[in-house]
Design a protein around this nucleic acid. Sequence first.
DNA 1: CCACGGATCAGCT
DNA 2: GCTGATCCGTGGA
Length: 184
Amino acid sequence: MDILPKSFYDRNAKEVAPELLGMHLVRTIDGVARIGRIVETEAYLGPPDLAAHSTKGLTKRTSVMYGPPGYAYVYLIYGMYHCLNMVTGPGGHASAVLVRALEPISGIDEATNGPGKLCRALKIDLRLYGHDLSGGELTVMRPKGRPEPFTIATSPRIGVDYAKEWALEPLRFTIAGNPYLSRR
DNA sequence: CCACGGATCAGCT
DNA sequence: GCTGATCCGTGGA
């Protein structure tokens, strides 16, 4: 298997976020895999990044962000959608990468062009809070074979206008021109 | 205790 | 472009 090792996540979110592009997110339910290619991510750097949930300090909701890298941080937003993050390094830094859009590869029959939609399509909810991404029901793999080349574009993160000067940081990473992005 | 707003989305104007 | 859906963490009284 080509599951990404813990060491992959043990770097700054700013480095991990673009490298997750093109990787395959694999959600297994009752032995059936739903696979999507990651095409859009955002880096949340931890304090003092005013857009990161961890900027308010350690709480029950954000506790997994303060732990070791390579685990899932799932949260409920607007009372109805879930969002999936990968905790990044170094441990205790409270940084993470938000997965914002997937290109369907197999087993997916709902839209995945947005962070809330991809969690609905892959049945990702709070039961996966703190899940170890190095195996099990939710993991990330490097696809086999020679990868198709792509261009990485950067832009400001979506929906964080409240974060003052951090709102404009180019911490959103996309596979340029991919049709499954959450927005242009 | 109560009020507020959010790393979203669909539907309507 | 604007609004409602729907819940919980957070902060103030």
